[in-house]
Computed example of a mutant assay.
Amino acid sequence: MKPRSSSRKTSFIPRSILRTIEGIKQAFDSQAESQLVEEFRAAQQRTLISIRFLLILIVVLVLVSQLSRHFVISPLVKALWNKEEVVSFLNSSQEERALAELKKFEQAIYFEFRLNKTPKLSTEFLQKKLKKKIISLAKKYKNESFDAVVNVFGDLLSAFTFVTIVVVSKQQLNIIKSLLDDIIYGLSDSAKAFLIILSTDLFVGFHSPYGWQIILEGALKRFGLPENKDFIFLFIATVPVIADTIFKYWIFRYLNHSSPSAVATYHNMNE
């Protein structure tokens, strides 16, 4: 089944006017009822195809990710990882976090001693506590490094699977795009403006740097990469600005022609 091409083209005439003209033409058409039923069935079929494809895509990606991690990647990495008897830090950020936790634990011991919650603070007692904590930290960061290596290979395999499915399923993707176009352009002007403002404030707005920082730190930690503050700040200073420029160009180039009333509503709500 081929998606409708009209929803993919950008016209210089506002879509609201085109829909009004099309509605008037259909009202005088003798076969309007049969065409309406046929369009409804086609829309229903597009929806079913899109939902089925998205469900299959999600299920396949989840299965590939989980099965490969538990039965292929993890056993291979564990077989190589066990050859190392010492703790392996993948980057300096892990060492800094481990040292900070150890210092915090030592300070907590002195604090509890000051509150008379621990027995007499001797060198032997302190060394025993610190040794126990160091063993716990070693196990923690060894598992974190192991999970990071597994995440790298697992996510690469998931990405390869996703790209393969996308390349093979071009027709289904066109149908999904057509359905999304119909849904988005079928929204009211207020709804379009609300979604635009919500998206821009989340990704390129005033508070977006904090969200980008949390996302980047989590991603770097997930893949065992050093949490370089300079890289994070440089990314935040450039990528949202580029995204904001592209978004404003999209409003000027496409949305102004397809839905000028939505652009006007967006400007009024944004002010």
Rank of each mutant, 00 (worst) to 15 (best):
E101P: 06
A262S: 07
I51K: 13
A138T: 04
V62D: 07
D230P: 04
N91R: 05
Q171C: 03
T20Y: 15
Y185K: 01
E101K: 05
F153N: 08
A43K: 07
Y254F: 15
S145D: 05
S74K: 07
Q213I: 01
F247S: 08
D201L: 10
K140I: 09
V239Y: 10
V62K: 13
L76A: 13
I49V: 05
A100F: 13
F231K: 08
P14I: 06
I246L: 03
A237P: 14
N116G: 13
I215D: 07
A191Y: 15
E144N: 10
Q35Y: 08
T10F: 03
A262I: 02
I183P: 08
S261R: 04
S6T: 11
K192H: 02
L99W: 03
F194V: 03
S65L: 11
S178A: 12
E96W: 12
K132I: 07
F53L: 06
F233C: 14
T238C: 14
L36Y: 15
R52V: 09
S208R: 08
I232K: 00
L55F: 10
Y210W: 15
N270Q: 08
K104D: 12
I197H: 02
H257E: 10
S169H: 11
V150Q: 05
P209C: 07
A159L: 09
S5M: 14
K248S: 12
L63C: 10
F252K: 12
T161R: 00
V150F: 01
R97V: 00
L76Q: 09
S68W: 12
F28M: 12
S7P: 00
K2I: 06
R52C: 14
R69K: 15
K133H: 06
S199H: 06
F153Q: 03
W212I: 02
F233D: 13
S178V: 06
D201R: 04
A32N: 00
D147P: 04
I51G: 14
M269N: 15
L220S: 09
E106S: 04
A79W: 10
T47A: 12
A264V: 09
D155T: 15
V150R: 00
K142Y: 08
I215S: 11
N256F: 11
F223E: 00
T164L: 10
I165H: 06
Y110C: 10
A219V: 13
E227L: 09
S188V: 01
L195D: 01
L36W: 09
E38S: 07
A148G: 01
E95A: 13
I17D: 00
Q127P: 06
V62M: 09
L130P: 07
I196G: 04
S5Y: 15
Y254G: 04
S188D: 07
L36D: 14
L234R: 04
Q127T: 05
F247P: 03
R69N: 12
M269K: 06
M269L: 07
F12G: 07
Y210S: 12
N91K: 00
L63N: 08
E227T: 06
A148M: 08
G205H: 03
A193E: 00
L234S: 14
F89H: 05
K25P: 05
S7W: 02
L187Q: 10
G205V: 02
V168K: 03
W250Q: 15
K132T: 08
L67S: 14
K104G: 14
L61F: 05
A148S: 02
I176M: 00
P240A: 03
D244G: 13
P209M: 05
L90W: 00
E22R: 15
W212H: 04
L195W: 11
